[in-house]
Design a protein around this nucleic acid. Structure first.
Lengths: 358, 358
DNA sequence: GTTCAGCACTCACTAGAGTGGAGTGCCAGA
DNA sequence: TCTGGCACTCCACTCTAGTGAGTGCTGAAC
């Protein structure tokens, strides 16, 4: 039983307004108690378990009639006639929007975060990968971390490295430190000098411009084979800039889904979704675009995740959006904790990424 | 003398020698039938189900007495007194070594493989990632693909790109097309010319040598700040060469584990293992080092995977070892199929990686 | 009008008994 | 050495209460 002091309940009801979502103070308190207890116990909550909750202080009979009203209004559901109540998606939504006290990490969690970022090292990809592990540890949810899109990062360096007689590697360094590569097959052997000349031309053509805005036209040098290399290089640059090459997804703690659900085929379908990078990235983006930070149950529209909730948090580097954090758990996840963890880790990650040192 | 009407059985028994593992022909045939049927049905196999199998042709009573002997010898197990038999790890081992007919992909699978490699494009990392998906699809197992170690690939290019006033990025291209990067924080601002000079020196110092063999001593240029950059660069190169940066792991189809087991905590513990890259890579390497291509149940010594079997297959590029393929499934997985898929895909992947064009 | 104690009712869950069936081990005889 | 027959075991399933947590309703008190 989570200890909740009365003043908090009153505060949150005040914050929700006198008619916060159409629920009077007692109904809100009852809903709060049901959701909290169901999150903790995963068992349907009966009227008797609610009478002692702060802000209720009426008999179980009265609670029952309020619960019946909450059910009529779609906040609660009953698995069967003689069972306790379970929150619906709408019930969780009200809880998240009006009732849940802004959570915070416990001391241990804060220490974990501090330690992590104190010792974090390595390049951005490893960092994001390990961040997903950290988030999963903190929240017991599956964590999804989407790396920054490089759409707007200017090209800092373009290089051609010969790997074989007719094979070269185009290596592009962007202003945000990302390195992208694409191999180029050449129609004929090209000597070092021509390769260097082509690289210089490519650099002149594209330096300072983001990958997405590399022009396809490039002035001819007069030398046929150099021109061929250059145009192949431009094609490669443009293909690197095309959409799907952008954001990387890191998923951590997918084993947590096997703990959250006892139905093995729920686990299977959720894992199947998590394997589809594009689906996950799009899903997180969609949720962010609707302006939500939590999507509960059917709200996100992905049917296999109907019994899941998703917490999203943008990561920003100096105001610029630079990635997304997502937490996936059952609808009865610990929302305050998840939101707090996502916020703290997101902020720290943003700071970290904006620091010059790796 | 029982008449064996199936030449395949005789072949495999011949291959195992007249005393293949200490089992006579009929016992081997019975074991074969039990394992095959258990793989197909996941139900304990009774004597009645075995009498019709090729190479048996004795009554169920005789089969029973043979089964009892097989149980005494540790090949079979009995969940309870009045149940059928289940293969032990030793039973699967005998099956894999002496009984299983070399499998092959069906027409559909072969077509999938062909299509995949015809349309495969992109850089090596994407290729390996998607290969893991292909293998999972083919075998219904979880697939693990370990990328090539770059230990022996010579450095082809070393470059320093300025990212900020006191921040540079070291970009290294290896002969096998791998690109590695490491950011370098500089103690003081360094101008372009000095950075270029330092890069040139670094290149001279390390070109043609694998990352693991970059010497830490480098001749001084006389210019203090250039020397500082160079020595930072050498440190960065050597840290890139240190062991753990090497092999990348790609896991595909982890949702398959949720289908293979109905106990949800088996699923959880297996997924937990799969999240630990280092454990998985080491495990695959250990199995390869013992010379096995299949590790069954407790053979691999990782306790949470006791109910799993692992098929491993090295991927080689022109004789050089260049990665590993692993398939993880329940001990009652389809070994012939898994071995065939791993072999075919491993071979094709090796060919593909050795082709110059991507 | 709101609240509450009391009451009848519902229904998942559990335990226990009974049954059918798949499977075994053993044994005597061919 | 193999086989048919036989007694036995034990899981899986069904059926039957019995239990208890929970409900909705109602009439009286405030």
């Amino acid at each position: 039983m989570p200890t909740t002091d009365d003043s908090r309940i009153d505060d949150s009801l005040d914050a929700a307004g006198p008619d916060g979502g159409g629920l009077d103070a007692r109904k809100a308190a009852i809903l709060n108690a049901v959701v909290s207890e169901y999150i903790a116990s995963a068992q349907p909550v009966g009227s008797q378990h609610v009478v002692d909750a702060p802000g209720v202080s009426v008999s179980s009979a009265t609670v029952r009639s309020d619960m019946a009203a909450l059910e009529r209004d779609g906040y609660l559901d009953q698995p069967h006639t003689s069972a306790g109540r379970i929150p619906t998606d709408k019930g969780y939504r009200f809880f998240v929007d009006h009732l849940a006290r802004p959570g915070s990490l416990d001391a241990l969690g804060r220490q974990q975060v501090r330690q992590f970022f104190d010792h974090a090292h390595g390049e951005i990809e490893q960092m994001l990968e390990r961040t997903s592990g950290l988030l999963a540890d903190l929240t017991d949810c599956t964590a999804m971390v989407v790396g920054p899109s490089h759409d707007s990062a200017a090209i800092r360096s373009v290089q051609l490295v010969a790997l074989g007689p007719r094979l070269a590697l185009l290596v592009v360094v962007l202003a945000d430190g990302a390195v992208q590569k694409q191999s180029i097959e050449l129609a004929e052997e090209v000597d070092e000098a021509r390769l260097a000349e082509a690289a210089a031309r490519l650099a002149a053509h594209s330096l300072g411009v983001p990958l997405t805005r590399v022009r396809s036209k490039v002035a001819a040098t007069g030398d046929r084979s150099t021109d061929a290399v250059i145009s192949a290089g431009v094609r490669a640059l443009r293909s690197l800039g095309s959409a799907d090459a952008g954001e990387q997804l890191f998923v951590g703690g997918s084993s947590r889904m096997a703990v959250a659900f006892d139905a093995v085929d729920t686990v299977r379908s959720v894992l199947t979704i998590l394997e589809q990078q594009l689906v996950v990235v799009t899903l997180l983006r969609d949720i962010l675009d609707t302006g939500l930070s939590v999507a509960i149950g059917s709200e996100h529209g992905v049917e296999p995740l109907a019994s899941c909730a998703i917490v999203v948090m943008p990561v920003s580097i100096g105001g610029e959006e630079a990635g997304t954090i997502g937490l996936l758990g059952p609808t009865r996840m610990n929302y305050p904790l998840a939101l707090a963890a996502a916020r703290v880790v997101g902020d720290r990650l943003g700071e970290r990424l904006s620091e010059p040192g790796r």
